[in-house]
């Protein structure tokens, strides 16, 4: 038993060190109280983001966001390298998510008529694709060329959506398919073979996939879409999809949430439903699901402190930190008062 935990000792020591460097409540308060974006950047220079912020070309919100992404990408690469070899393939998503990010930047750029050089400046140098492949993809002048170049990769199935895109010039088909390819393969990897070894990882991703599907269902329901219009873009995995799909077409949003009875999602969503009805916005419901994810991630860090718990906890905390910093910077740029920013952080 104890031998099984040895590979995680180094990983967890590094993760704990990284966790300690996350932006704490005091620093967060300093960022909230900073008078402008420039001051926020100065305050962040003392954190792990400092290295990436010190040579910003411009102190715009976009430039800061790019720096945050770069830092995140490097941390992911670093973590991936120290994950025990026997489970590292289960954490390939730490690399692949940057491929997905870059592929989206590229095809949005191609669709929006940006030049290869312009697209290149927006790419994050991380993930499984090397620099030359990314450059080649960015230099494609049509979606057909772009998808053809992905023929030899795990994204070859994007070709199935090309006809729908060409007919409608609607990137939804390509983007939704790309997300599905990534998340389905992630789920298949996690739920097969090594399942017994990492039940915690399955738990973590069950919640993640549930939240993704639930958010898609809520948004589709609010927009009065039929199930068949979004069905093929639901991601595999999770625990709630079959029961929701079954009653989707005849149900309203309230019914949809009622169908979740006996799950962890039911009570918090039901409690937030009056706020949705009052404001007409789905955001409070989405925020509830995000908070569930954060709580789950943090619980896992405590549940299995000697295995992958701390890693999952760290990934969750870092995602949360990034979200908060982005909200603060954008709010500051928009000229929101300190108190308004505090309230926004609580709401979102």
């Amino acid at each position: 038993m104890i031998f099984g935990l040895i590979p995680y000792l180094y990983l967890n020591a590094r993760i704990m060190a990284k966790e300690a460097k996350l932006v704490g409540p005091d620093k967060l308060e300093e960022l909230i109280s900073a008078p402008s974006v420039i001051e926020i950047v100065s305050a962040l220079e003392e954190t792990e983001y400092g290295e990436y912020l010190s040579d910003l070309a411009a102190e715009s919100v976009e430039a800061v966001e790019d720096a945050l992404l770069l830092q995140n990408a490097e941390i992911d690469e670093e973590i991936f390298k120290i994950i025990p070899k026997k489970v590292s393939d289960l954490f390939l998503f730490l690399k692949k998510k940057w491929d997905i990010h870059n592929l989206k930047v590229i095809f949005r750029g191609i669709d929006g008529g940006l030049s290869g050089e312009e697209i290149n400046t927006r790419l994050i140098p991380a993930g499984e694709f090397d620099e030359i492949t990314l450059k080649d993809l960015a230099s494609c002048r049509s979606m057909e060329d772009f998808i053809a170049q992905l023929e030899e990769t795990s994204y070859r199935d994007l070709a199935s959506e090309l006809a729908a895109y060409e007919k409608s010039k609607n990137l939804f088909y390509i983007e939704a398919k790309l997300d599905k390819i990534f998340l389905d393969s992630l789920w298949q990897k996690i739920s097969n073979g090594k399942k017994k070894k990492l039940p915690l990882l399955i738990d973590y991703f069950t919640l993640k996939m549930d939240c993704i599907n639930l958010k898609i269902l809520l948004r589709a329901k609010r927009d009065a879409l039929d199930l068949k219009e979004v069905e093929k873009y639901f991601v595999e995995g999770g625990s709630i999809l079959p029961r929701l799909k079954e009653g989707f077409d005849g149900a309203d949003l309230n019914d949809l949430i009622t169908m979740l009875e006996e799950t962890d999602y039911f009570q918090p969503l039901m409690e937030t439903l009056p706020q949705y009805e009052k404001e007409g916005s789905l955001l409070p419901l989405e925020a509830v699901l995000d908070r569930l994810k954060v709580r789950k991630g943090k619980d896992m860090a405590l549940k299995q402190p000697w295995a992958i718990g701390p890693l999952l906890g760290f990934l969750t905390s870092r995602e949360e930190e990034m979200k908060k910093i982005k909200i603060i910077i954008k709010s500051k740029e928009m000229g929101l008062e300190t108190e308004e920013i505090r309230n926004l952080l609580l709401e979102l």
Binding site: K104, D111, N170, L171, F172, K215, E229, Y233
Partner: peptide, 11 residues
């Protein structure tokens, strides 16, 4: 409609 706007629903 949601699926006509040109962006995916995951991120």
């Amino acid at each position: 409609k949601l699926n006509e706007r040109g962006y995916g629903l995951v991120n």
